[in-house]
Design a protein around this nucleic acid. Structure first.
Lengths: 203, 203, 203, 203
DNA sequence: CCGTAACCGAGACGGTACGTCTGGTCTTTGA
DNA sequence: TCAAAGACCAGACGTACCGTCTCGGTTACGG
């Protein structure tokens, strides 16, 4: 009826849902099992029982497939992230969320794909933008909102740049996670909350 | 005479210095010009006017070549980093160093190679370990030592885990840099020092 | 009403004459313009403004399409061939016909399709049979009949195998044409008639 | 030493004889077993245990591979063709050679490759030229020379165009062979010699 | 100081994956 | 209710690199 796609673009209405799901599954499985660089488009297609062209028709790159696959996976998880706790005790809430984040990072189902996406995003700005916009920023927004609540409750120094404040927690965690400098434990994130929050609260 | 290498290992004494330099130059140039993934061993060899085997003889991977090339490049720079300033004013010293770090990160000669190495290290643990040990940790050590001096001078809360403290500065900076979430400016690093240090100093 | 087709076969009565013509035109044009091997079913369908299935429904192969297209083309030509001249002078008649055949062969509208069909028929016996039965044999029959007339008139040695006699003229011509050994000229076909006929006439 | 190849061309001196032979064998076997169009470069490479690039490095096309493979095969055969008999009896000699040619054509080892090459040469003029120059013409030359001997012995009408005379024998044979109009038997070639030679001899 | 072992540039080799193109089949959709 | 349009699985195309191996040429060690 109202088929207004750009010329040369495929018709989304006729897309095979079955193939899409199979491709997601294959991509995630292969990345986890064999690593990102050994995961190939051909391999994904073969494992998904799909023609290569079906992948090239809908995604521009291996990274794009994996990003969507991961978003799909994360989206259908029993959403823990998307409700930031607010018990009134900011420190406790932060500790809880950071501990949960660490656990999630160590979940073998998530680990390989998300590392791969982060790494690819670091090299390829296009992928990086997608990664940040669709995966990272939504999470950071929840942090920011929780901090705003705290600020309004007078639990924070007034006039803080909340974004920077958020990064004070998230940055070090990401640092340890991505660069594997030292183990990423609950003790570490608790300490992080302690040190960082101490600098953000009024005296 | 005293040629005591493991069997099968090449003889370092007969190594061509000329080739090594040409390979470093070619690798750095290609990564900067065409990006990491489009940089190939064949391409490096061709550009360096060197046989492929000469690369495979001395390095195990593309990442290893680039790491050494980068270390060589960084080593011959007028070393600013390797002397952490100590004016007695911790905040000022940190601001200075973080600003310098940001400038360095934006230096087009360094940017592409270091991003590539970081990304590769995120995926490949072997590379990651090398990256951290040979590039990152030496820098972090300087931070730690400066903080120790400050601690001894009573400028910091006693009993702090200095490593975590260091990451409070370095983590957020790395986060913005690698993930490209928001611009990495002097204003940002100054604010970082403000917020983080505030949580580390005695009241 | 009287729809007595084998099960699974399409209904000829509802066939689109418009599509058929468009497919013929597209097939002939593409073969002439781009060559047989670069002519694809997809290309024909696209150029004819027709779905691929419309081609697959009615023809088993690219060669079959082209054969019918060519037969259609030849059939609607102002038929010169289908009346073999009989002036009473066998040599003159043969010279005339062979010259005309050479001219036809060099006609750019016919050349590419007929070469393609011949070549395809050489490899694929199925196509070859069709090619011979529907295209070649009707022509040869005309030769044979003219020779029979001559034989009855006593212009030929008695007891000749007329089929072999026909091939004495047609074979060498085909040889030069298909294999492109030497130029195919009127002089050549005249000489052919001279030499061959000389062996067929009584002394 | 004297390595004077055009730039970009591979070094013939370092070519692997082993691979070449394996490729010949694989190409001939596949064409015979599965037919020309189902024979693919990938298939040849796989069967020969060779990388695809090794084929693309040395041959421009599937047809070129097959032509060389066939020439190699024909060259190492106990050469029957390359000595045209001359018993003094031209008719007998011609009958003998044409019978042998028919037998060779029906040899399953030769049949598929040579048909494929002929067909490909009919479509692709480049291949056709090679086919004619390297395979066909050497054979025709032998015929021509035998006719010249006969001419000098006064067994032929003087002033004949010997090339056309040769085609009087070879053309019809090729016609039946390639187009599969009627069976190609010894009886047929004998008759051919009878009819054609009769037109070439003095009365 | 000479023989030789190993490095060197070069590039052919067996492979794997790329991204594209087409073959045939099957499904959707608009006229 | 068709037929166009085109998505689908399959697999070959020709190219680019991988990492290994072999070839001469050259260089510098060590007897």
């Amino acid at each position: 009826m109202n088929d207004t796609r750009p010329p040369g673009a495929p018709d989304t209405r006729r897309r095979s849902e079955r193939s899409r799901r199979a491709i997601y599954d294959a991509a995630l499985a292969l990345v986890t099992e064999t690593g990102y660089s050994r995961t190939t488009i051909e391999g994904i297609a073969a494992r998904a029982g799909v023609g290569k062209q079906t992948i090239y028709r809908w995604w521009p790159s291996k990274a794009a497939v994996l990003l969507e696959a991961f978003l799909d996976l994360a989206g259908q998880a029993p959403d823990g992230d998307y409700a930031f706790p607010d018990t009134g005790d900011l420190a406790a809430d932060l500790r809880l969320v950071l501990r949960a984040t660490v656990d999630e990072i160590h979940n073998p189902v998530y680990e390989a794909p998300i590392r791969a996406l982060a790494a690819e995003g670091i090299i390829d700005a296009e992928v990086g933008t997608q990664f940040v916009q669709r995966l990272l920023e939504p999470q950071l927004r929840l942090f920011t909102e929780r901090l705003r609540t705290a600020e309004e409750a007078g639990s924070l120094r007034p006039g803080l740049d909340l974004r920077t404040a958020v990064e004070l927690f998230v940055g070090p965690l990401t640092h340890r996670w991505l660069l594997r400098t030292l183990p990423l434990t609950h003790a570490y994130t608790d300490r992080l909350v302690d040190y960082a929050l101490y600098g953000l609260t009024p005296r």
